[in-house]
Nucleic acid binder design. Sequence first.
DNA 1: GTCTATAGCTTGATAGAC
DNA 2: GTCTATCAAGCTATAGAC
Lengths: 228, 228
Amino acid sequence: MAQPERLEKQGDSTKEKILSAAESVFGKLGFDGATMRKIATQADVPVALINYHFGSKVGLYRAIFAKSTPAIYDQRLVGLQLARTEPDWEKRVELVVKALIVPMFGLRARQSNGADFGRILARELTDPSAEGRGIFRETFDPIARMMIDAIAELFPDWTRAEVNWAYQTMLGAMMGVMIDNGRIARLSGGDADSDDHEAAALHVVTILTAGLKHRDRRMTAGDTDREA
Amino acid sequence: MAQPERLEKQGDSTKEKILSAAESVFGKLGFDGATMRKIATQADVPVALINYHFGSKVGLYRAIFAKSTPAIYDQRLVGLQLARTEPDWEKRVELVVKALIVPMFGLRARQSNGADFGRILARELTDPSAEGRGIFRETFDPIARMMIDAIAELFPDWTRAEVNWAYQTMLGAMMGVMIDNGRIARLSGGDADSDDHEAAALHVVTILTAGLKHRDRRMTAGDTDREA
DNA sequence: GTCTATAGCTTGATAGAC
DNA sequence: GTCTATCAAGCTATAGAC
């Protein structure tokens, strides 16, 4: 803004090379498993350049989120608005589910290493110490609350606990089919292909939509501690 | 077996103190984030004792799985057998879902630090480099294949891909409500309590059972890339 | 902006006294 | 079995030449 868009020759390219390598290494090894050296090696730059451009390891990490997060936020917002205009209730449920799932898989498909960002997200979500970094709190919490409110509107007779657990179920399910750790291919004997983002997204959306629509409230009275 | 059960005075207690501390630290910080020193401090033993009893860091890590995994396996097996004897199809679906979910939450509730093991599991599942450790391949893959086969039997008209993605969806959903990273409480304003294992388990089981039973095959023909 | 060199610390693991 | 002392390797981050 203040500084008019300079043509930074290769300076820009270096930052992007580092960001891209970091995304890959953080995704594969996690925040603690990744090292500045490994990232620098993969980016083919000296380690010092990372600190010059991003300040610190956590600074680099945050830059990855800063890059990919706004698009997710915007697309989810659009998805929720689209759902609001849908008159048919059944289709509205599906649209809310898609508002959560589709932007994430869209990123995977669109970006060259979108799968890496998906891995980073999944790890961040399952990392209690990640709360300290506060990334989710700053970036995803606002849209998450909107999602939760949208679910509550769809099912006005649900308790707040039911609504929230439903959201966590959806979020977890999305992560489950987004991980791509090699195990899915192994277990399925190749029948389920992690690289087929559209198929993966479609299957989660289908099951989650059905699960929300047909959630049987009477089951809530039952017992879980049945032997099994 | 060969060695008759000796009463090892406190030797046994030390190993268990380390194991318990390791479970907690690994759960909170992950494999790479955890350090031998932090574990030793929490267990209140010198670092060298960990290497004496477990050989290495990864040896200690594997010992954690060796301790908690067989119970999960057995209970899932029993759950699947129970499902097989159920004549009512709808109830059978629910029993298969419970065979996956209930043992995990049962462990959380029963064991003092069962939540820590849940965290470790979730991280191991979302860690591509964990495949190198081979823990899932050795411990959970056999029962996972049985679960997948059970789903396939329940829905004979599904493709193998659909069956496998359904399993991954279920697994992810379970992780999603099992993580307990503090975010669930924050987003729900306390309405969803991660410590209430029974409630959490019940909500996932309910949604997943409904999702499987009412999965609409006709949706599979639809498009995912609709703008959302 | 780029790079080499290195400071200052923490890591996993072990040697060897008890 | 337990513990202190220590090693070699690897870590993040920075100083300073270009």
